[in-house]
């Protein structure tokens, strides 16, 4: 769905080395921990990624990998306490947002960076109409009159292809179906024309036919507006369809980063390989699935060395002792595995 134009544009920047400045949004060595009664959970342990205008970065990971917490930190909606940022930067147009005042951050939210959430029913306020919630932004942030704001809100609903937008303006969220609510949320997040859109599992709660509609819509709106998009998901199928680049997260770290074609063709981290092996495919009659053994680590007690080593089929003594850093391998991709080269070069 993401067009060729976009992927070509983003390709030179994919190695993370070209164009050091001029990045739209950069997360740099971010660290977040949750201080709970039972102990400190290190949820994010040095995450670095960036997204440029017009490109789609997919952040892939299972529950507890830290992908949503990273997004919450970018948006400044991390629950503090228990969550605390203990290091790193989140730069938007080169400026560190973590050092900004609450008022400065508020100005970026919506206009600079907007977010859509997985569960549209709880993300929308049930006691206000959908139209009011969209129009509110135009009144508060753009100083429009009530009637102008309403007109713009109806335009937005129309843009996300809600049939009979005018009539739907005064509906409450519960009167919308799941797919329509997700559309309304997209309309709301795009109202102030953000430069970056963070989509946190936007289609996970939806049926496949509706999922296809929503992903199409997002792709279309992104192309029109040349938005940067961070797509957070666990669905390897959706990622293959829309992403330009992929960052795979495990236990609060990026374990692999690559463009979408390289990652699926030759994963450079055993975790990525394990994930790809463990999904049943629609176009293949399944044999026994090759699973990743064991469970994701407890974030209060992350294994020493490589956090994936207890589950890794390739693990060697060095993996238990030394944490592999995320290193460039070949062109435009990085892996945090001591044996990344071997993995890529084998057949």
């Amino acid at each position: 769905m993401s067009d060729i134009l976009v992927s070509e544009q983003s390709a030179p920047g994919a190695d993370g080395s070209g164009r050091p400045s001029g990045r739209l949004l950069e997360v740099d060595d971010l660290r977040v921990e949750f201080r709970t009664r039972d102990g400190v959970a290190k949820v994010i342990n040095g995450v670095t990624y960036h997204v440029d205008a017009g490109e789609t970065l997919a952040v892939l990971g299972e529950s507890g990998s830290g992908k949503s917490v990273t997004a919450q930190t970018i948006m400044g909606i991390l629950d503090t306490p228990p969550g605390f940022v203990t290091g790193g930067q989140v730069r938007f147009h080169g400026k560190d947002m973590l050092k900004m005042s609450a008022e400065q951050r508020r100005r970026i939210r919506g206009e600079g960076i907007a977010m859509i959430f997985q569960d549209s029913l709880s993300a929308l306020n049930p006691v206000f109409t959908v139209g009011f919630q969209i129009a509110e932004q135009f009144r508060v942030r753009r100083g429009m009159s009530r009637s102008d704001a309403k007109k713009r809100a109806i335009e937005m609903l129309d843009q996300v292809k809600i049939p009979n937008a005018k009539g739907r303006f005064s509906n409450y969220p519960h009167q919308f179906s799941g797919g329509m609510r997700q559309r309304a949320m997209i309309a709301m997040s795009l109202a102030l024309d953000p430069e970056v859109l963070i989509a946190d599992e936007p289609t996970t709660a939806l049926d496949v036919t509706v999922q296809a509609q929503i992903m199409d819509l997002l792709g279309e709106l992104q192309r029109e507006r040349q938005m940067g998009m961070i797509l957070i998901t666990h669905d390897l199928g959706v990622v293959a369809d829309v992403a330009d680049r992929i960052a795979v997260m495990y236990a609060g770290r990026i374990v692999e980063e690559a463009n979408v074609y390289d990652l699926y063709a030759k994963p450079a981290h055993p975790y990525t390989l394990g994930l790809l092996n463990s999904i049943p495919r629609l176009d293949e009659k399944g044999q026994e699935l090759r699973t990743i053994k064991g469970l994701p680590p407890n974030l209060m007690n992350i294994p020493s060395g490589c956090p994936f080593n207890p589950r890794c089929p390739m693990a060697q003594p060095v993996c238990r002792e030394k944490l592999p850093p995320l290193l460039q391998i070949g062109s435009g991709r990085a892996s945090a595995c001591h044996f990344a080269e071997e993995l890529v070069n084998r057949d």
Partner: peptide, 12 residues
Amino acid sequence: LSAVPVPDPTLR
């Protein structure tokens, strides 16, 4: 069936 995303970017 056609709407199910296939985890292979070369088919997109």
